Amino acid sequence: MMSEAFVLEAQSRNDAGKGSSRRLRRLENKVPAIVYGGTADPVSISLEHNPFWHQLQNEAFFSHIITLKVDGKAQDVLLKDLQRHPAKDIIMHADFLRVDKNQAIVVQVPLHFINEDSSTGVKMQGGRVSHQANEIEIRCLPGLLPEYIEVDMAEVEVGQTVHLSDVKLPEGVESVALSHGEEHDLAIANIAVVKGGSDEEEEESEATPDAEGDSAESKD
């Protein structure tokens, strides 16, 4: 699941502050950011906006170890926070967290639901899948971080709910919620009965009064 390799080039900067960040964005088309965590001090950096923006179009970028090269020196980081412009497709600021390969990290990882259309509840029983969660929080070593977690809906029937405890996690990966106890076994998806009948049933129900009316007229 960790087939992607993400690399970002950045430059350190000493002129922190709102005015400096504004100049970076407007005049140099760069994104102000910060790197923190580990034993080193926080460092203010800047990244080229467009290459960074293109990396963000990949879902895996948000749950993947990133190689961040600051002034040519590489370090492993996670993207922890991202600020976007409310009206424009512009990245305003980013926070990166340094990671240690020997220390567990806590990350939100997306859920990928598979076999929904062919599931028992949908294909055989006419139900509809509903998602209660699209990502879950996991804990693992950086080297074991999955790009996503698969949720197989193949055997789920109408009226059944899939919980965190039903999801098969990769070896070395644990659910943060479940580590707090069974009462945190949250629902993530279910298959429910579709309200209302099918189009054919509706057509039949609409045709019934007319048929009765025709019968009554024939008796007259």
Results as ranks from 00 to 15, higher is better:
residue 3 S to V: 03
residue 4 E to C: 06
residue 5 A to W: 14
residue 5 A to Q: 15
residue 7 V to M: 13
residue 11 Q to F: 09
residue 11 Q to C: 12
residue 13 R to N: 09
residue 13 R to L: 00
residue 15 D to I: 08
residue 16 A to E: 15
residue 18 K to A: 12
residue 18 K to D: 14
residue 20 S to I: 07
residue 20 S to A: 15
residue 24 L to D: 07
residue 25 R to L: 11
residue 25 R to W: 12
residue 27 L to E: 15
residue 29 N to V: 06
residue 30 K to C: 00
residue 33 A to P: 09
residue 35 V to L: 07
residue 36 Y to T: 01
residue 37 G to P: 08
residue 37 G to W: 12
residue 45 I to T: 00
residue 45 I to D: 00
residue 47 L to H: 03
residue 52 F to T: 03
residue 55 Q to K: 05
residue 55 Q to I: 08
residue 57 Q to K: 15
residue 57 Q to A: 10
residue 62 F to I: 06
residue 62 F to H: 06
residue 63 S to D: 09
residue 64 H to A: 04
residue 66 I to S: 11
residue 67 T to C: 09
residue 68 L to G: 01
residue 74 A to W: 03
residue 75 Q to M: 08
residue 76 D to H: 12
residue 82 L to A: 06
residue 82 L to W: 13
residue 82 L to S: 01
residue 86 P to Q: 02
residue 87 A to M: 12
residue 87 A to R: 13
residue 92 M to Q: 08
residue 92 M to R: 07
residue 94 A to C: 11
residue 95 D to T: 05
residue 97 L to R: 03
residue 98 R to P: 14
residue 104 A to I: 07
residue 104 A to T: 07
residue 104 A to S: 07
residue 109 V to Y: 11
residue 109 V to L: 10
residue 110 P to V: 03
residue 111 L to V: 09
residue 111 L to H: 02
residue 111 L to F: 14
residue 112 H to M: 13
residue 112 H to T: 13
residue 112 H to D: 15
residue 118 S to M: 04
residue 120 T to N: 09
residue 120 T to M: 12
residue 121 G to Q: 01
residue 122 V to E: 03
residue 123 K to F: 01
residue 123 K to A: 14
residue 123 K to W: 01
residue 123 K to T: 06
residue 125 Q to L: 04
residue 125 Q to G: 02
residue 125 Q to K: 02
residue 125 Q to A: 03
residue 126 G to A: 04
residue 126 G to E: 10
residue 126 G to R: 08
residue 127 G to N: 06
residue 129 V to A: 04
residue 130 S to D: 08
residue 131 H to W: 07
residue 132 Q to W: 11
residue 132 Q to A: 15
residue 134 N to F: 11
residue 137 E to Y: 13
residue 137 E to D: 13
residue 139 R to S: 14
residue 139 R to Y: 13
residue 140 C to Y: 00
residue 141 L to F: 06
residue 141 L to P: 05
residue 142 P to L: 01
residue 144 L to R: 08
residue 144 L to I: 10
residue 145 L to S: 02
residue 146 P to I: 06
residue 147 E to K: 02
residue 148 Y to M: 15
residue 149 I to E: 00
residue 150 E to V: 11
residue 153 M to T: 06
residue 154 A to I: 12
residue 155 E to K: 04
residue 156 V to Y: 00
residue 157 E to L: 05
residue 158 V to Q: 04
residue 159 G to H: 10
residue 164 L to W: 06
residue 168 K to R: 09
residue 169 L to H: 02
residue 169 L to W: 04
residue 171 E to M: 08
residue 172 G to M: 05
residue 172 G to N: 01
residue 175 S to D: 07
residue 179 S to I: 01
residue 180 H to C: 09
residue 182 E to C: 10
residue 183 E to M: 13
residue 183 E to L: 14
residue 183 E to S: 13
residue 183 E to G: 11
residue 184 H to K: 15
residue 186 L to F: 10
residue 187 A to D: 11
residue 187 A to C: 06
residue 187 A to R: 10
residue 189 A to Y: 04
residue 190 N to K: 11
residue 192 A to V: 10
residue 193 V to S: 08
residue 194 V to E: 09
residue 196 G to I: 02
residue 197 G to D: 02
residue 202 E to S: 11
residue 203 E to G: 04
residue 204 E to H: 08
residue 206 E to V: 03
residue 206 E to K: 15
residue 207 A to K: 00
residue 208 T to F: 14
residue 209 P to T: 01
residue 210 D to E: 12
residue 212 E to W: 12
residue 214 D to N: 14
residue 215 S to I: 13
residue 217 E to R: 07
residue 218 S to R: 07
